[in-house]
């Protein structure tokens, strides 16, 4: 196996706990300098994957290389090349930001003087210079996360693992973290990002994989995954709820769609289309001919939510948008 171009290579990774499995033979390759989004519901195996790649867990079977180094055989070599941002801000609550970074830098064996200057540098870079002397207990969630990120970057890792980096953050904290991650990626770091939030994956990742029940069920760019759901869709909002069923059959004929989904509360119907402009023109004409009044007609790409639900079937319940999740 050549791993020269790949930051991460996983082959047939399995992790079993008794008779249950967290990973059921997972394969993944991540090219250097890209952001790989790993998307999936709670318990799909995302964190287990990250923990194996970050040398915290040993796989039951299969193998993995990170930065060209086997994680099971040379964990210490891997640890020199990675940064890990876990689900909680893994910083010492009782110490200040400065004390935290200095401690971690010493544990990375930078030596006392370099540890101090590196801590100063990172505090400034993450906008924490003013608050660096305060204990973390007084930090906001977003600040804590930024400090956590700073601690992961002490050695300028080739590969950064972000395990649900914005879970539990308010919208402002989330934006702070996203901006910090974007800056990093600009600098050539490879990032593996797990998330339950489709919006986050859409915003940050170059390539996505959907994990369900310990396996990858789909891979590709966000656009490729959306295309798997049959390309574009047409949405129609009708004036009267009573006219929705009639409108659905009219639009189905006009747009040549097999399945039309309807949402009575929102008086909305949605159908996949193949030829965008023809479908739009035909739909407008057919609705007018049938005497059905439409409030809104729009062409759009499918959302990742639709892709996700389509691909994982009934097993996955994924949070559609951030707002819903944090509400």
């Amino acid at each position: 196996m050549t791993t020269g171009d790949h930051a991460i290579v996983a082959e047939g990774l399995r992790k079993e706990y008794g008779t249950k499995h967290a990973l059921a033979g997972l394969d993944l390759t991540v090219p250097r300098g890209t952001v790989q989004g790993v998307l999936g519901p709670n318990g799909a195996g995302k964190s287990t994957l990250v923990r194996i790649l970050a040398t915290l867990l040993r796989p039951t079977a299969g193998r993995a290389e990170v930065a060209g180094v086997d994680v099971a055989r040379h964990p210490d070599e891997v640890r020199r090349r990675i940064g890990l941002l876990g689900q909680h801000a893994a910083v010492d609550e009782h110490l200040s930001g400065m004390q935290n970074l200095e401690m971690f830098a010493r544990l990375y064996h930078l030596g006392a003087r370099r540890a101090r200057s590196r801590a100063d540098e990172l505090l400034t870079r993450f906008g924490l210079a003013d608050t660096g002397r305060k204990p973390i207990g007084k930090y906001s969630g977003g600040m804590r996360r930024r400090l956590d990120l700073a601690a992961s970057l002490i050695l300028d890792p080739e590969i950064l693992f972000l395990d649900e980096p914005t879970t539990g953050l308010d919208p402002r904290g989330r934006t702070e973290v996203w901006e910090a991650v974007r800056t990093l990626v600009g600098g050539g770091t490879t990032v593996l990002l797990t998330t339950q939030y489709l919006e986050e994956a859409d915003q940050l990742a170059d390539a996505l994989c959907l994990v369900d029940d310990g396996r990858i069920v789909a891979e590709g760019t966000a656009d490729q995954l959306k295309a798997r759901l049959g390309g574009d869709r047409i949405d129609v909002v009708v004036r009267d709820r009573e006219g929705l069923a009639a409108a659905a059959s009219v639009v189905g004929m006009a747009a040549r769609a097999d399945t039309v989904t309807t949402d009575a509360d929102r008086r909305l119907l949605s159908a996949p289309v193949t030829d965008r402009m023809t479908a739009l023109a035909e739909t407008v004409r057919a609705l007018a001919a049938a005497g059905i009044e439409a409030e809104d007609i729009a062409l759009r790409r499918p959302t990742l939510d639709e892709v996700f639900l389509h691909l994982t079937g009934a097993t996955g319940t994924v949070t559609g948008t951030y707002e819903e999740a944090s509400a």
């Binding site: 990675i82 801000a89 893994a90 544990l107 990375y108």
Partner: peptide, 18 residues
Amino acid sequence: LDKGVIDRFRSMPMAPSA
């Protein structure tokens, strides 16, 4: 353990016994 600080230590190239 709860805060994930131990996880961070374990993901670092430090002496685990420390």
